[in-house]
């Protein structure tokens, strides 16, 4: 029983680590597009064009919002995959 319990515990730790890794990667992208592309790098990216408008202006009023939507769907897909790998998915 004790051995099995330890086994389950290490599985729980590994599952949580995989989850934290997914969160860290996705939140890094989240910060890069909004706080990076639209705010801290607003001046340098102003001189690059995307379509007919400055790249930083596109990040500020379109690009970061579009990225946010994609990030949540990717997270959802990624976590479902991790859930199944660790056999903790719902019926």
């Amino acid at each position: 029983m004790d051995g099995e319990r330890t086994n389950q515990n290490s599985k729980a730790v590994a599952y949580w680590k995989a989850n934290l890794k997914a969160i860290t990667i996705l939140l890094t992208i989240w910060a890069l597009v909004s706080y990076g592309g639209a705010i801290l790098l607003a001046e340098p990216l102003f001189n690059l064009r995307f379509g007919q408008i400055p790249l930083s202006f596109w990040f500020a009023q379109q690009g970061s919002m579009i990225t946010f939507v994609i990030l949540i769907f990717v997270y959802s897909w990624w976590m479902n995959k991790i859930d199944r790998e660790y056999d903790v998915h719902e019926e």
Partner: peptide
């Protein structure tokens, strides 16, 4: 960005 980016925090 402020009223949309919060949903990423909420979801994750």
């Amino acid at each position: 960005m402020g009223w949309t980016g919060g949903y990423v925090l909420l979801a994750l």
